[in-house]
Computed example of a mutant assay.
Amino acid sequence: MTFNPDADISKGKASKRGRNAGIAVGGGLGVLALFLISQFLGVDLTGLGGGGEQSAVNDSALEQCLTGQDANENVECRMKGASASLEAYWQTEAPALGVAYNAPQDFILFEQAVTTACGAASSATGPFYCPPDQIIYIDVSFYDELRSRFGASGGPLAEMYVIAHEWGHHVQNLAGVLQRSQDGQTGPTSNAVRVELQADCFAGAWAAEASRVADERGVPFLQPITKAQYADALSAASAVGDDRIQQVTQGQVTPHSFTHGTSEQRIAWFETGYEQGAGACDTFSPSTL
């Protein structure tokens, strides 16, 4: 999607956290973080836990990201703009779903490694939401990986789909739904898959309304989605399907270990949210997904 150049994104909740060279990921990556990150990637990442010393942290509030034009020109500003849009959307939509809403505590763009309430994580873990600190984390180099390794077409909406998915986890956390994924079960109809597909559905619901969500002056953050941009979002959803990622990383598909759903399912639930809204995102009732 393209931001309206004069939209005010300055209040977007996003900050950048960088580290000095020589980082050694460690501190014992929390079981919860490993489980949630593995859910996003569809790959067992439990081997990432371990010891090590952490380097100094440098924080930046992304104060240079002020307008939609900044978001169109810079990926970090685009993340801040996406957070402004998502926050405005969920302030209205969450109460309609019966969820008492509050914003995530932060949305952190990190480099190389980051320390969270779920433990320490590295760039290799991909984007994730940590429930204990209610913070979304991403190293934006993940988008290069999504294109080069997993075959996504890329594009701004594809990038923002990832953030909208993680924001959906925050809404699930507030609603008490996220805990359903933590029963240790995997497979095509597991609660882990249902939670992830619901987050995809929430992302689609936001995308459908995004061009109508406005800043405090009434200026819409984003312009209407084009067909090409919509295709980019579906491409990203497909690229992170369990079957696609397992084929790339393992050379075979093992449905019993699914944690996110197939590429087809992820596309279908994004489309459900886009076409029918967040109220249609009940992934727990259907016997088949």
Rank of each mutant, 00 (worst) to 15 (best):
144 D>P: 02
82 A>M: 09
11 K>T: 15
108 I>H: 01
241 G>D: 03
139 D>I: 01
103 A>R: 11
153 S>V: 04
45 L>D: 04
141 S>T: 13
216 E>C: 07
60 S>E: 14
74 N>P: 05
87 E>T: 15
181 S>Y: 07
284 F>G: 03
270 F>V: 09
175 A>E: 06
242 D>V: 05
187 G>N: 02
218 G>T: 00
274 Y>K: 14
277 G>E: 03
212 R>S: 10
271 E>N: 12
91 Q>G: 09
165 H>S: 06
126 G>L: 06
239 A>W: 04
276 Q>W: 06
152 A>I: 08
286 P>Y: 10
134 Q>N: 12
283 T>L: 09
249 T>A: 13
241 G>M: 04
248 V>A: 13
207 A>I: 03
7 A>N: 00
257 S>V: 12
10 S>V: 07
188 P>I: 04
80 K>I: 00
141 S>L: 10
13 K>H: 11
258 F>W: 10
219 V>F: 02
68 G>S: 02
170 H>N: 06
142 F>K: 09
215 D>N: 03
259 T>P: 07
131 P>L: 06
167 W>P: 08
270 F>G: 07
270 F>Y: 10
27 G>W: 09
234 L>I: 09
185 Q>K: 13
151 G>W: 01
172 Q>H: 08
69 Q>P: 04
54 Q>S: 14
36 L>C: 06
9 I>P: 00
24 A>C: 13
142 F>A: 00
269 W>G: 00
289 L>G: 05
39 Q>E: 13
87 E>I: 11
136 I>W: 01
155 G>V: 01
193 V>L: 07
51 G>E: 12
185 Q>M: 11
100 A>S: 13
236 A>D: 03
92 T>C: 02
272 T>W: 10
95 P>L: 08
58 N>K: 15
152 A>D: 13
19 R>P: 05
240 V>I: 15
161 Y>L: 15
82 A>G: 10
61 A>W: 08
161 Y>I: 09
20 N>E: 15
81 G>P: 05
160 M>N: 13
157 L>E: 11
132 P>E: 01
285 S>Q: 10
136 I>P: 04
154 G>N: 01
66 L>W: 04
